[in-house]
Structure formats: structure tokens, C-alpha cells
Amino acid sequence: MPAETLPSLADVPREPGAKKPDAILVADGVVRRFGGLTAVNVNHVEIPRGRITALIGPNGAGKTTFFNLLTGFDKPDEGTWTFNGKTLGGVPAHKVARLGMVRTFQLTKALNRLTVMDNMLLGATGQKGENFFRALIPATWRAQEREITERAEELLVRFKLDAKRNDFAGSLSGGQRKLLEMARALMVRPDMVMLDEPMAGVNPALTQSLLGHVKALREDGMTVLFVEHDMDMVRDISDWVIVMGQGSVLAEGTPDEVMADPRVIDAYLGAHHDDEPSEEPPAPVAAAADAPETAAEKPAGEEKA
């Protein structure tokens, strides 16, 4: 298992923006504002190579926005980041994918009216037949197509979708679509896979198999960064956890440490969750709903100080 030969994360300080021995992705000062709202404000964060890193945080913490920025699907107002030593700020999404960082989506994007096999074949990069003029002459791309088909076939067997290869992707169940999306991402031969809520909408029977597939990515030497709300999954498979709240990184550490961290509990439940209700100032319902988020600002502010 390659993970054993990787530098240990035991000596990494448990603090936001901690330096890692071998970081594949390093982001600095990434800021994204939507009007007056600062959705993402990450001072410094490093993702360790060859590990499974979870990105967690309450709703509205900016996890998906940060994902979109890193993968080129959104442009930051400020900030830079490097992937495998290459600067990625301002690089369009398709080039990010070609450099080896491939993402999946929170709402699964199976290409419904394409067959499962066509979904897979699309994932392969550097296809000669994707050039307009070569496409007209099948002889120039047939051999490569056969090669790609073989690779797709292997992946479909691994993800137990081989029986569905000629079905429209739109006819698959929600869980199968998640599997297809992951398998399709692997066709790109990425160094790093970014999974946006891989467990959302997947029935419990498929959860274990999906978890197994994510772990298998690490065994194949890939780096995984995933956004997830399911704490059992985070505890089960991640080597490292990064907690976001209010757009910035609140805490980092191993799953057990992070889940015991009072700052994290505050971020999820609000700083005053143990207080007597009578101590709360009387507030309208709408303000009460915002309470956990305003509370989360406090630890973030302490961190900067």
C-alpha cells in the first residue's frame, strides 16, 4: 500500500494552514466575494499527497465554492494556488482537468442521453478523434478508440457497471450515477480526485461499496479531496480533515481530533449551544436561524489574531 511509504502526518501541527511534508495542492490567500458576502477567504491551506482529505463544515461554509475555485469552475477575486508545483490561478477548468485534477459534482452530472460506455470513453484525454478533421477519417482514431474502450471496460467491471454498458446513463439509479461519475473521472488518469459530496443521495446499501472505491483511489496512489456531511464516512476513510466555516479554515487534524475540537463543535452547533435559552437576547425567528453562523465568526477571529 503506497500510503505507508508516504511521509507521516503525525508531526503536522494541528492548526489551520499547517505545513505538510509533501503537499500536492497549496492555496494562498484565496478570496471569493459574491457582492457583499465573502464566501471564501482561505489564508493558506495544503493538501497532502496520496492521502484522503475531507473538507467539512456547516452549510454555507464555502466548501463547494472553494472546490469550484480550485478546479477552475469559478474565478477568485484574490489568491493563487499551485498543483503539483504549477500555478493554477486563472487556468480554465478543462486545462485544470488535463493537468490531473478532476472533480465530480454535488448534483451528479451523468450525461443522460449518452450510453454508460460513451460516458466513460468521453473521459479519456488526448483523443485523436476529437479533432474535427481526424474525426472524418476513422482510420486515424480506431486503434486508440479500442485501447480506450478496453480501459473503460476494466473500470466498468471494477465499479460493477459492466452489465449496464449499453444503457443510457439517464436510466441508472442515483447511486449508480455516482459510481459512473467516479469511474468516468478515472478515465482522465488524474493525480488528484475532488469529490463533491460523493454520498449525497446514495442508498445505504451502496454506501459501503462507494467507500471502498474511494479507498481504492488512495491505494492506486491518487490524492482524494472530498466534501462531505456524513461524519461516519469522514471518520471511516479520511486521513486528514480540514474544517471550514464562514469561508475560512477553522481547524485541521485527524478525524477524531477534529471532531473533538470545541471550535468545530461551535461552528456546527453555535458557540452558545450549552447556554440557557433565557440568556439569549429575545430575537426574531430569522435572526435565530443565523445564530450558529455569527457564532462561528468568533473562533475564526481568534485564529487570525
Binding site: 469552475f73 477548468a93 478532476v102 465530480t104 452530472k109 450525461l111
Partner: peptide, 11 residues
């Protein structure tokens, strides 16, 4: 079908 998915695959 979905241009973001295609973009995410490097096209």
C-alpha cells in the same frame, strides 16, 4: 447533456 461535466473531463 451537460457542458460542465464535459469541462471537468478536460475538453
Amino acid at each position: 447533456e451537460d457542458e460542465d461535466a464535459v469541462r471537468s473531463l478536460g475538453k
